[in-house]
Design a binder for these strands. Structure first.
Lengths: 89, 89
DNA sequence: CTCAGATGTGAAGTAGACATGACACGAGTA
DNA sequence: TACTCGTGTCATGTCTACTTCACATCTGAG
C-alpha cells in the first residue's frame, strides 16, 4: 500500500477503480477482438492485456498509444479521467 | 540492448530519437514553465521531467496524461508518432 | 567578479511493467 | 460426454519508472 509520497513505482490512476480497464475491455469487445488478438495486434503478451483490463495497471504511454490506435480510440478516451469525458452525475 | 523479443521492461518508442522529449520541452517552454514548475504541477520530481525530455523514456500513461494536460496538449501530440501528426517529407 | 536560476549528470533504492508458461473454469457445440 | 475457445490466476524473472541527493555547468543580472 502506498501512503503519501511514492518511493519508486509508476504514476498511476487517481482512482484504482478499474475504470480504464473497463473502458479498454468494452472497446475491445466492440471491435470484435479477443485478448489474444489485441495482444498480437499491439505486440505484447495476453497476460499484459489481462493486467490492463482487470488490474490497477499503468501501461507505458507507448503501449497505451498502440492499444488506443488498435481500438480506434484516443488515449484520453481510454485512460483519461471519466470526468473529462462527460459531466459528472 | 534489446534484441528480438523483450524480456521485461516497458514498451517504448519505435525510434529512440528523443522526438517526444523535444516535443515536451518545446511545449513546456511555450507554456513558460521551468522543469521544476512542470514537475510540481504534475506531482513528480524534476529528475523525472529531465529524463522525459532528454532520455529514451517511457512515462506511464497517467503521467503522460498529466503532463499533456498541464501543457495544454494531447498525449497523441506529444508522444504519438510524428507521422501521425503531419505528412512525412 | 559574484550570485541566482535553470538545467544536466550520476548513483543508489523501491515498486512495477513487461515476459513466460502452466493450469483452472465456464460457455458453447457436436 | 468430450472438445474448443476465451478468460482468469499464479509464480517467477528481467528491465525500467520513479525517487532522493549531491554536484557541475551555463546564462543572465547586478
Amino acid at each position: 500500500m502506498r501512503i503519501g509520497k511514492r518511493a519508486g513505482g509508476v504514476v498511476r490512476a487517481e482512482r484504482a477503480d478499474g475504470g480504464a480497464g473497463e473502458a479498454v475491455r468494452a472497446r475491445r469487445k466492440q471491435a470484435g477482438l479477443t485478448q489474444q488478438a489485441l495482444a498480437a495486434s499491439v505486440g505484447v503478451s495476453r497476460q499484459t492485456i489481462i493486467s490492463m483490463e482487470t488490474g490497477d495497471y499503468a501501461p507505458s504511454v507507448y503501449l497505451a498509444l498502440k492499444v488506443a490506435g488498435a481500438l480506434g480510440a484516443s488515449v484520453e478516451e481510454l485512460w483519461g479521467d471519466p470526468v473529462d469525458q462527460a459531466p459528472a452525475g
